[in-house]
Amino acid sequence: MRDVKAPVLAWGAYLIVLGGSVAATKLVSGLMGHLFSLLCASIMASLILSFFMGLRVANNLLRVFALAGVMWLAIMLTLTMVDYVMRDIGECPNAQADDVARNAQGCPLDSAGNVRASDTGA
């Protein structure tokens, strides 16, 4: 049965990628490891989409709809992150671009000996 071979192979490939992804977490720490894991996740998802969900043989319209979902998710994620990545730049002198955490604690302003507003409440 030729049509059974493809999904079984996809299943095998999936397990290998899964193993690689988990192993990478143990071996490579930090950003590179994370990026690798996310890449592996995309490969695993594509395997399912193409072989188990038939996107490999589906007509283009279905592919467009599948892609549209991903596209719109990307729009939401990107534009939201634009806000968080750039939060407080150009407005609050001491805040770091990569430290949104600071923002949640309060923007550290000039230390003119003022009583911090947050000390009185919040």
Partner: peptide, 15 residues
């Protein structure tokens, strides 16, 4: 100068 403004239901506290 910097003035602190704290909003609170339903008033403004100024320092």
């Amino acid at each position: 100068m910097t003035i602190d403004v704290i909003g609170k239901q339903w008033m403004w506290k100024i320092q």
